[in-house]
Every structure is written in C-alpha cells, then in structure tokens.
Amino acid sequence: MRICYFGTYDPVYTRNRLMIQGLKENGVEIIECRVKQTRHRLKKYLELVNLHRKIKKNGNYDIMVVGFAGHAIMPLAWILAGLNGKKVILDLFVSEYDSVILDRKAYSKYSLQALKFWAMDRLACVLADLCLLDADEHINYFAGFFKIKKSKFKTILLSVDQNIFYPEERTDETKFVVHYHGSYSPIQGVKYIVKAAELLKNHTDIIFNIIGKESNHQKEINMSRELRLKNINFLGYMTYEKLADTIRNSDVVLGMFGDTEKALHCSAYKIIEGFACRKPVVTGDTPALREIVKDKENGLFCRMADPRDLADKIMVLKNDPDLRNKIAESGYQFCQKYLTPKATAGNLLSVINQMLK
C-alpha cells in the first residue's frame, strides 16, 4: 500500500513521527507531500500542488493522510485527493478551537477569532472521509460540539517510541523522585503539582522535578519561589533521550491535572511514556484517561485540580512499594501490547483497508 502523507505537518512532532514509523513497520510505503508551515500561504499551496502532481506521475497512491496539524490545509487536500479520485483521512488529534479559545483563553469565545477557529475545525471534519482522534471521549466531544456524525471519527491511541522510552534500573535512589514533563497550558495543571509539593515539603526525602521550557513555567516558578519551596526543581527543556533518562531515574510519573474542558476528553503522551519506562503513573481522573488507565491496576487516579488528593496519592505509592511495582509492571505490559507505533498504526491500516474495499 502507498499512502500520501500530506500537508504542512512537522515530521519530528511525536504524533506524526510515530504514525509514519508505525505505518512503515506495517509494510506501508509513505510518500511525503509536505512543505514547511512557515512558508508564505500562496507559495506553500502552489508547492503542495506541484509536489502532488509529481507524486501522481510517479506511481500515484492509494489514500491520502493529512498530518497533524492539518486543519487549515484540509480544503486543499480535499480538492487534490478528490480530483485524483482518492479518499482523505485527517489526523485531527485536537481541536484548534478547544486549544486556543477554551483552554488557553487567547480570545473571547464570542469573538470573530473564536468563530474562525470553530469554522476551521468543523470544515476540516466535514471535508475528510475520516478523522482520527486519541480517545472515544474525544470523539463524543467533536460529534456533540461540532454537530458531526460519530461515524466520521476513529480512535487511534497514542503510541510511544520504545527505542527512546524503555525501562532501566535506577542509578540514584537517595531521593523519592516525582517526575513531570510537559507544557504550561491550563490542561496540564502544573500549579496543582507545585501546591502538592508545598503540602509534602516536610518530607525531605521527596523531590519534584518539573521539566519543560522554563519561560513557559514562569508563573509556576514564581509560585514556587513565593512559597520558598526547596523540594522542587525546574529543569528546563530536554531532548527526548535526556528526558527518558530522567524518567528512568524517577519513582513516580505525573500526568495532567487541569480543571479545563479539554482535559476531560484528551489523552497525554507523558502517561504512556511513563508506562514505557515501567514507572507508576499518577494522573487526574477523566473520562478520556479511563480509556487507557485503570485505577490501582496500571495507574493511580486523583481528583482533578486537587493538590491534596495528588499529594495523598504520591504518599500512597511512596509507602507501598508492592503497589508501586505492580502498577508499573501492568502499565508497561499494556504499553507493550497496545501502544507501540506498529500496534496503533496497524489499527489505522485495518481501517484503511476497509475504506478501500
């Protein structure tokens, strides 16, 4: 099978990189029709048209997949695939409206910008033959909010690069290390991690490591300074390889805790990266995360936006090494079975085969 991977997507971004890797591992030939997002809009579109024309001349393809984030480029993909008599799949992954308007609150939900993002999301879904999301709960959100049939969507779980994220014995066990990595966005709820660290400040053997661009965590850094916390480190941006090392040298991996609408229907890479490194995960309890996390089996839930409950769950794992090891092993086995790039892309390939019949 030959798939045209189309758009202005970032090939290094985890979702795109692992989806392409997984498809290749399933024997699919990937033909990339991609230009950089930074190019001038008209020039970008013309380059994509020319690249697509060359692909048609050199053996064509069976189906088109628009890589993330492809919301804005979807009309062009629909035209080119339609003229070529091919179906098009959009790796939707997230709602731009949800991210920009509801989660980050960059504009009022009554503004023209909000209307633009809503219309872009909905049009992209309408034009695609199939849209991919990361959780069934995410499908429920899209179908309800954008008034689109659920049959337009398919859940393809997140996957993890097991060449980078893999288990290994800790090299330093002098402290009980609680690990978080990710962005500053409200969905992550980093401020609740800082507050949990404050609640546990008298446990001098517990240390919190927060990894991500420090400029993005400035509010949380300032909060930590105001609270005079000595049990929390802001470590800054790391390569994936260095990040995986820090996970392996931790005792607990944290997920997301923000009390936002988006948090209810999205999954999180940090959770499955913890699984892959055979570490116990504590995360907020949401409908979407219940699809991959089973409480006290392969993870531990706490209440969203509740630093006291988060601190309590950290202490549960600290004081119960048997539970810690059981959860870590169960998460690792779940990851090995369902969350490899080959496994998740294999699910997509099965869907594509049905579409092409």
Rank of each mutant, 00 (worst) to 15 (best):
11 P>A: 11
12 V>A: 05
15 R>M: 09
15 R>L: 10
25 E>A: 08
26 N>P: 11
26 N>Y: 12
27 G>N: 07
39 R>V: 13
53 R>I: 10
58 N>I: 02
68 F>A: 07
68 F>W: 13
68 F>E: 06
70 G>L: 07
73 I>D: 00
84 N>M: 01
87 K>L: 13
92 L>E: 00
95 S>F: 01
97 Y>I: 11
102 L>C: 10
103 D>Q: 11
106 A>D: 13
115 L>M: 10
116 K>M: 11
119 A>S: 11
120 M>E: 06
122 R>S: 04
128 A>V: 08
136 D>C: 03
145 F>T: 02
150 K>A: 00
153 F>G: 02
153 F>R: 02
156 I>S: 00
173 E>K: 11
173 E>W: 03
181 H>M: 12
186 P>A: 15
189 G>M: 11
191 K>H: 14
191 K>N: 14
198 E>I: 03
206 I>N: 00
206 I>W: 00
214 E>S: 10
216 N>K: 13
218 Q>T: 13
222 N>E: 15
226 E>P: 00
230 K>V: 06
235 L>M: 15
238 M>F: 04
248 R>L: 05
251 D>K: 09
263 A>G: 14
264 L>F: 06
278 R>Q: 03
283 T>Q: 02
294 K>S: 07
296 K>Q: 07
301 F>D: 03
303 R>C: 05
331 G>T: 06
339 L>D: 02
348 L>Y: 10
351 V>L: 01
352 I>F: 04
357 K>E: 09
